[in-house]
């Protein structure tokens, strides 16, 4: 069974339709890449998955559990929103690290706050905190940032900041990790280090959705690729097939335009 099923998600802002009946599914341990021109609704789709926007229509099912269904009463939709959110992780285009915390604190903050809700927190406070810190260090180490743990975001390069943001998203062990153009805000020479980390995650079979303009990367790393245009999924399938031999005219046009720069 698919770990994620998105059914007929639609989203309007006022009178403009930004997403129209978007449906797809994702297998556990696989990476999905989403490509498409600017304004096609990719960010909005990820924001819907992370409950930052409320879809007007459709449903979101994770591991067979319906997290969101537009036909549910409003109260029902809001219930347990925080827990539902934890199924997804989000890496933003602009990093959105917390500037007043060090790299390590950025990674451990949310886990520490969640731990406080545990019943045994008071008794085992010390061990729990040590575990969380250890976990944070491991994640930053994995991101190649072992020597940057106590740096503040403004002391880090864009590529390093984005890797901290990835570690922060991984800290809560989300079922599905979403990336919204993780390298678009970076200087070209810094994109490589971030893409390498994401590639590493793919090799470890992390379930991911990656919105990207890095076509070669998407073709290489993802198991499935979606091309979006104007709020609809125009084409989805095997990345190599979609990129090398697109079936749809719109996909072909986009790729040609893209190849021409």
């Amino acid at each position: 069974m698919a770990i994620l099923e998105v059914n007929d998600i639609s989203k309007n802002f006022g009178s403009t339709t930004v997403l129209h009946k978007v449906s797809f599914s994702l297998e556990e341990g696989s990476a999905l890449a989403i490509i498409g021109s600017s304004g096609s609704g990719k960010t909005t789709l990820l924001r819907c998955l992370n409950f930052l926007e409320r879809p007007d229509n459709g449903s979101i099912v994770v591991r067979g559990e319906t997290l969101f269904d537009a036909s549910m009463p409003f109260k029902e939709q809001e219930k347990g929103l925080r827990t539902k959110r934890l199924h997804f992780g989000m890496v933003f285009q602009s990093f959105n690290l917390f500037p007043q915390y060090t790299a390590l604190e950025n990674v451990t903050l949310a886990e520490g706050l969640l731990a406080k809700e545990r019943e045994d927190y008071k008794q085992n406070k010390k061990t729990i905190c040590e575990q969380i810190e250890k976990h944070g260090r491991e994640l930053l180490d994995q991101m190649g940032l072992a020597d940057r743990m106590t740096h503040y975001p403004h002391q880090l390069s864009g590529g390093q900041q984005q890797r901290v943001a990835i570690a922060r998203a991984l800290a809560l062990k989300p079922d599905i990790l979403c990336f919204d153009e993780p390298t678009s805000a970076l200087d070209p020479e810094l994109t490589g280090e971030v893409l390498k980390v994401i590639r590493g995650l793919a090799e470890q079979r992390t379930t991911m959705i990656i919105v990207t303009h890095e076509m070669a990367f998407a073709r290489d790393v993802s198991d499935k690729l979606i091309f979006m245009d104007d709020g609809v999924i125009v084409e989805q399938g095997d990345p190599k097939q979609v990129i090398d031999h697109p079936r749809e005219e719109r996909t072909r046009q986009f790729l040609t335009r893209y190849a021409q720069g």
Binding site: R85, F98, L172
Partner: peptide, 27 residues
Amino acid sequence: VPAGQREAGQVLGMTKSQIFFKVTLLQ
């Protein structure tokens, strides 16, 4: 304080008050 700060807190499962006191307040 940029909206992205609040959103980053939200996707990390923080409550409204945690976001205010731990993220927004000092900024």
